[in-house]
């Protein structure tokens, strides 16, 4: 059951990721990226990271990607025109890519023999555990990222405001 769920959502993630890279119109890429993020959220659930899965959908798929979709709609960017691509690069590079990825997969399999992920194998990913770690061990990064977000808000406001007047 775990294997079936993993395979379904991993294949959806890879197909959507290929779509992000291959599609010409940015909005199709954006919707495919939302698909990647949603299927990754399910994979996080399988790994026991329930809070992170919810945060992924709320923050990444529900806010950041909406921002992307807004900008694409506002700029009204058309589809990208394809320039000439050297088929030699595709011919040599494609098989090389696949070979390197298979080599990587084999090495990783050797590094972690026999360890498998069961649903429910890791129970420490609940909101209580993440919150406890966030406010004790990782308190300094938490405060620093709050200042980072403030800087980002101010930067975005200044950049977006300068062109309006």
């Amino acid at each position: 059951m775990d294997v079936i769920l993993f395979l379904i959502f991993a294949i959806i993630a890879v197909v959507c990721a290929i779509n992000v890279v291959v599609q010409t119109h940015p909005i199709s890429s954006a919707i495919s990226l939302v698909g990647v993020m949603a299927s990754l959220a399910v994979l996080y659930l399988l790994l026991g990271a329930e809070f992170l899965a919810a945060a992924q959908v709320i923050v990444y798929a529900g806010a950041i990607m909406v921002l992307f979709v807004f900008v694409i709609m506002l700029l009204n960017a058309g589809a990208e025109t394809k320039k000439g691509q050297s088929s030699m690069a595709l011919f040599l590079g494609g098989p090389l890519l696949v070979a390197l990825l298979m080599l990587l997969a084999w090495f990783v399999q050797q590094l972690f023999p026999g360890i498998s992920v069961h649903f429910g194998g890791f129970r420490g990913g609940s909101a209580q555990d993440v919150g406890r770690a966030l406010f004790t061990t990782y308190l300094l990064p938490f405060e620093v990222t709050s200042i980072l977000i403030l800087i980002a808000i101010l930067g975005a406001i200044v950049l977006a405001r300068k062109e309006m007047d």
């Binding site: 329930e50 809070f51 899965a53 919810a54 709320i58 798929a61 529900g62 909406v66 609940s126 909101a127």
Partner: peptide, 13 residues
């Protein structure tokens, strides 16, 4: 366990 977050996530989508 994360029912509230689930409702928030779905309404974001």
């Amino acid at each position: 366990n994360i029912g509230v977050l689930f409702v928030l996530a779905v309404s974001s989508m």
